[in-house]
Amino acid sequence: MIILIGILVSVATYLILSRNMIRIIIGTAVLSHAVNLLIMTSGGLKTGNVPLLGHGDGPFTDALPQALILTAIVISFATTAFLLVLAYRTYKTNGSDDFNELRGMSDE
């Protein structure tokens, strides 16, 4: 599981280091998947029942990481959406989605 996370992080890093905006955005999405899984794993995997009271008896899996990840998923979605629109605007205004070409804007 951890190895899978490591691979995901590597892929995400490589994507972020590329010059294309879409690839960078997808990279951040992949990175957030990796982090979510990492949190999940650190909470202990499959150690108990679904954390719903009344659905079987304990022990339950750790509910805290789940709550954290739920927050993280939503926020990463918001970030992704925002970045996408930002990319769209940048492309509309500057006519390029390549960060190498976007450097050194005149109004910096």
Binding site: L45, K46, F60, I69, L70, I73, V74, L84, A87
Partner: peptide, 26 residues
């Protein structure tokens, strides 16, 4: 789902669907 987190799975499914649509729109 495997890791006994149904809420997360639901959220993830919804978010993933919406993001895919967003990507495609963009």
């Amino acid at each position: 789902i495997v890791f006994r987190a149904p809420d997360l799975a639901l959220t993830q499914l919804v978010v993933e669907s919406v993001s895919t649509v967003l990507y495609l729109i963009c």
